[in-house]
Amino acid sequence: MRSIRGIPIVLAVLTLALAPAAAALLFTLSQFGQRPPEALPLPVAIFLGLLFATPLAFMLRRLAGAPRVITVLVGAGAAIGVALLLAPFGFDVAIGLLSAAVSTTGAFTLLALRGLRTEMYGAINVFIVCTVLANFTLDSFLPLGGFFLVNVGTLFFGITFTQRDRVHRFGRDVVYRMIAAAAVANVIAALAIGTPLRYVAVSFLAIVVAEAANTEVYHALLHRRWFTRVASSNAVAAPLDTIIFTTLAFAGEAFATTSWMVQVIVTDVIVKYTASLVAAITIMSRPEWLPGVPGAHDGTVEAERTIRPERTG
């Protein structure tokens, strides 16, 4: 039993320790972009910290009192250690520690919501943050083999599929509010870090259109099993998002030849859809990863209809 109880502690410490490392990795990946930044922008470091807030909250909620406080302190020490280890390689220690601090603050904010609200806002948080980070790396491409070009942002969008499908359980209205919040957050973040207005507008359009299509397809299939809904809705959203963004954002750029755009679109669609299927299969294999969802293991509609956000007052 002690070893089982120790798992959340270890994972929470690792989560905090990974925040500075993730900041360094994100900066490295951004160097593959057409306009590589000289340093990781402050707003990006904050959003990156928020990304770790949700998993940290889910670990810490299994602890209470002194164990929770001690875990956070140990995690903070680990984060400082990782940041200092990365400093000789040119990474900003302050940026890494900022991400860790934001992770901690965000985690305790989610924990204060309690119950299903922690579940719902935790998923919403990851969805919004990942769309912002995806757009930060929207012009960074990693060559893979002789044909494929992987957009770094696609790696973040793979995470959004899982979170969006979790939020579907709370109703269509919640999903649309989340999409609107994500669109606004992306515009604000893009303006804060100097992203060209063309990218801002196209990103806004792609998010709204693709996510709305995903939501409508998903809810039109409520009579089908959960996996069918997820696979079908993502089969529409993944290519729609990729085609809209790639063609409108990069058309006319010197590097964006027709063959280049075909490479990007094909690669992105494959990566996004594969990521969504892997995430869905993983969730179905571990129903306990969806706390508070009675019967989630069998993918029935009834399981989702039992979920409602807690009311205040």
Rank of each mutant, 00 (worst) to 15 (best):
A45L: 08
L98H: 02
F32E: 13
V93W: 09
L40F: 11
A76I: 13
G65H: 14
A101I: 04
V69M: 09
L51P: 02
P41A: 03
A87I: 00
A94C: 06
A101R: 04
A101Y: 06
P88D: 14
A57G: 02
Q31Y: 10
L40W: 11
V72Q: 01
I95C: 06
T54E: 13
A100I: 07
R61N: 14
L48C: 07
A87M: 04
V44S: 08
L42C: 03
Q34E: 10
V69E: 03
I46C: 08
P41D: 01
A87W: 02
L98Q: 02
A45K: 04
G65E: 01
V44C: 03
P43L: 12
Q31H: 12
I70D: 02
P41Y: 03
R61S: 13
A101V: 08
I80L: 14
I70L: 09
F58C: 06
F52A: 14
A53K: 11
L98N: 04
A83F: 09
L98R: 03
P88V: 15
G77L: 01
L85Y: 09
G49F: 12
L98S: 02
P41S: 07
D92P: 04
G90P: 08
L56M: 04
I80W: 12
F89A: 14
R61T: 13
P36R: 10
P88S: 13
S99E: 07
G75H: 11
A57M: 07
A83T: 08
A64H: 11
G90W: 04
L97E: 15
